[in-house]
Lab assay of single mutants.
Amino acid sequence: HHGSGALAALHADGPHAGLPVTRSDARVLIFNDWEERKRSEPWLRLDMSDKAIFRRYPHLR
């Protein structure tokens, strides 16, 4: 199991509170979210491209 239990660094406060600090933090969040959702949506594709990251977390651009 590759990303399970990996912890992402999140901004503690300010405008980005609760959001990932780096792209690799964002990838951890996206992976964990996908892993949760694919139980009920097995067709869901995992997209951890930069484009997917920016779409979801525009502050990382």
Rank of each mutant, 00 (worst) to 15 (best):
H11I: 07
A6K: 14
R45H: 11
L46W: 01
H59N: 02
H2C: 14
F54P: 00
P58N: 03
G5E: 09
W43D: 15
E41C: 14
I53E: 00
L7H: 09
H59V: 01
P42K: 04
A17E: 12
K51P: 13
R23P: 12
R55H: 08
G3E: 09
L19C: 07
P58T: 02
N32R: 15
P58K: 05
L10Q: 15
R61A: 13
W34K: 00
S24A: 12
H1Y: 14
V21Y: 05
H1P: 10
K38Q: 11
R45N: 10
D33H: 08
A6Q: 10
D50Y: 07
H16M: 10
R45Q: 09
E41K: 10
A8S: 05
H16W: 15
T22R: 08
R37Y: 06
K51A: 13
P20T: 01
R55V: 07
N32P: 00
S49T: 08
R55C: 13
R37D: 10
R55D: 15
V28R: 10
W43R: 08
L29H: 04
S40V: 11
H2G: 05
H16V: 05
K38C: 15
L44H: 07
M48Q: 06
L7P: 12
P42A: 04
H11Y: 14
E35H: 06
R39V: 10
D50I: 15
A6L: 13
P15S: 06
R61F: 08
R23S: 11
K38P: 06
L46R: 00
P20C: 02
R39E: 10
L46F: 03
H1W: 14
P58H: 02
K51R: 11
P15A: 08
R27L: 09
P15I: 07
I53H: 02
H59T: 04
G18E: 04
L44A: 07
S4I: 11
A8W: 06
S49K: 00
H11C: 05
A26Q: 00
R55I: 13
R39I: 09
D13C: 11
H2T: 14
L46C: 06
A9C: 15
R23A: 10
P15C: 06
N32V: 10
M48S: 04
D33G: 04
L29R: 03
E41Y: 09
E35I: 15
W34V: 02
A12L: 13
R56N: 06
L44N: 03
N32Q: 11
T22N: 07
F54K: 03
P58L: 02
G18L: 04
A12Q: 15
P20W: 02
